[in-house]
């Protein structure tokens, strides 16, 4: 009896440890590969519709766009300054879908980008450019500020101060 009492918990402990180990491993691989996921505009719209009082700052960029890459740290600063506020910074890459694994994910990892990053999964740019903003020529960087009350689109580069002020003045 006493023997059995000892062996059963040990067995359990082993299997627990194994399960725990597997979960850890899969979490690590998940984190390393799931930095950037594909995004449809419908999904983005749905998220904004369910966002309640959240203001979304959505930056459109690409790894090949040097002014975009240059302003990314400003978005990180905005994100950090608003962690406790209902503000969500989202980076939407317009890189080719085929570059997701080879270029976009390594770029995000190497540059330690902690904001949410997506790669836009829309085949027809004529359609998605118009949908994001009628005035947009398609040039990047471009940034959309949106909440339940306001929607402002800017086809320009932002400094840290400009980002902060645009967010503050969003009515």
């Amino acid at each position: 009896m006493t023997n059995n009492d000892k062996t059963i918990p040990t067995k359990f402990r082993y299997s627990f440890m194994r399960v725990f180990f597997i979960i850890c491993l899969s979490l690590i691989t998940y984190c390393a590969t799931a930095q950037v996921t594909l995004l449809k505009l419908d999904e983005l719209d749905k998220r904004m519709a369910n966002g309640k009082d959240t203001t979304y700052v959505i930056n459109f960029w690409a790894t090949w766009c040097s002014p975009c890459v240059a302003e990314l740290p400003n978005f990180e600063k905005l994100r950090l300054a608003n962690l406790k506020k209902p503000v969500k910074v989202i980076l939407v890459s317009l890189d080719f879908k085929s570059k997701l694994q080879k270029e976009v994910i390594p770029f995000v990892l190497n540059n330690k980008i902690n904001a949410e990053v997506f790669l836009l999964n829309e085949p027809d740019q004529q359609a998605y450019i118009e949908r994001i903003d009628k005035k947009w020529s398609g040039a990047i960087p471009a940034t959309l500020f949106v909440n339940k009350k306001a929607r402002r689109f800017y086809e320009k580069e932002f400094t840290e101060t400009e980002l902060k002020n645009t967010l503050l003045n969003l009515k």
């Binding site: 317009l94 004529q126 450019i129 040039a139």
Partner: peptide, 10 residues
């Protein structure tokens, strides 16, 4: 006329 994403001019 159409719109497109492209690389800005350097």
């Amino acid at each position: 006329s159409t719109k497109a994403v492209g690389c800005g001019i350097k």
